[in-house]
Amino acid sequence: MNKAQKAMLEMREMDELASMSSFVHRMSPLSKLMMTIVYIAVTASFNRYDLTGLVFMVIFPVILYQMSYVPVSTCFIKLRGILPLILAVGILNPFFDRATVMKIGSLEISGGVISMITLMMKGVFSLMFSFLLMATTRIDELCQGLRKIHFPRAITSLLLLTYRYSSVLLREVSNMTDAYHLRAPGQKGIHISAWGTFLGQLLLRTMDRGDSLYNAMVIRGFSGEFLYAGNKEYIRCSMIMAIIVCGLMILSRFYNIPAIIAGVFIK
């Protein structure tokens, strides 16, 4: 399977997840977007040594994953996109920041180790939540929601069209790559002599496709705005629920809940 096919598979998987039905799927897209933004902002705002406070944040995505029936495992494949840079930044922390901040028995833990762990956790948590947003919301629903808050039409229309056409072009690229490799067995990538022609040919066809696409759209009455049909029934008070969840998130930023829970029990 080549890279383009893998990408196609991934997009399809997201589409299938998003068209399932569950409580979270039925919440309005804007409320989910708001929760995602608040969650990521709260998670990112934790101090880099505040490991215990950050741990509590895992509860929100875990509960929502259970409610939405989205398997958590699919989300971890996506980590490969963000992990390299986080690792590059985080892995050196223990070497630069050696002041001991904590002792467990005779084991001394430096600030660098703590900050490395919190950095990784922040990365994983925010990924989990934004994945949840896309796994429970179809892209057209999201764009429709964004249009309701007067997000620029040019960008939402462009996003929908690009999304629609990326699978088409991925298929083209996949076919072309396969054909190329069948003619050039044992070669790893595209040879330098074909750098220009390979993508260039596709580009020319694509530009023509853009023109014919526009003509086809005009014939069907396109005037620059997509009309969203078939409104899905969303849960009525999903915005209120989202606001409550956001409030809980913000509360858990200011109060170290793990410490409070433990404080009640350890006495």
Partner: peptide, 27 residues
């Protein structure tokens, strides 16, 4: 008109996105 450019912009963006999946061998 922007409406006319939109499809071309979209397919070009999709092309760039798909084009990122191509491996180019560095001689």
């Amino acid at each position: 008109p922007t409406a006319k450019r939109l499809p071309t912009m979209a397919v070009a963006a999709a092309l760039v996105f798909a084009g990122q999946m191509i491996n180019y061998t560095i001689p």
